[in-house]
């Protein structure tokens, strides 16, 4: 199950990861090897076996809707790479 260069580029685009040509080349081989390894699971009979997403039973946890202390604007923005006043600055998303 070897991944083509186009497939690697497609997955990288889905993940929003910019790759150099060498990285595309190298990752293609490595991901193909890993996929071949994990394909061993196909030989396991899982007919009628339910999937496990979590090892503990998860229930929706509810609490009273009470106000509590949170981060103020300065604290929340302290790690912002770019800001304008009290806002995170984002690059252009729609060209006019």
């Amino acid at each position: 199950m070897a991944l083509s260069t186009e497939e690697v580029r497609h997955i990288a685009a889905l993940c929003r990861i910019g790759l150099t040509s060498e990285e595309v080349e190298r990752l293609g081989g490595q991901l193909s090897d890993i996929l071949a390894h994990v394909s061993a699971l196909q030989e396991v009979d899982t007919e009628g076996v339910p999937p496990t997403s979590h090892s503990v039973e998860l229930r929706s946890v509810m609490r009273e809707d009470e106000t509590g202390a949170g981060l103020d604007a300065e604290e929340a923005l302290a790690n912002a790479p770019r800001r304008i006043q009290d806002y995170f600055k984002v690059n252009v998303t729609l060209e006019g």
Binding site: I17, N79, A80, P81, R82, F88, N91, V92, E95
Partner: peptide, 19 residues
């Protein structure tokens, strides 16, 4: 690259910057 952490590609569009 918006709220915290490394942020590159200022001047690019949002997807280019993210990649």
């Amino acid at each position: 690259g918006v709220k915290f952490g490394l942020s590159m590609g200022e001047g690019r569009d949002i997807w280019g910057a993210m990649e």
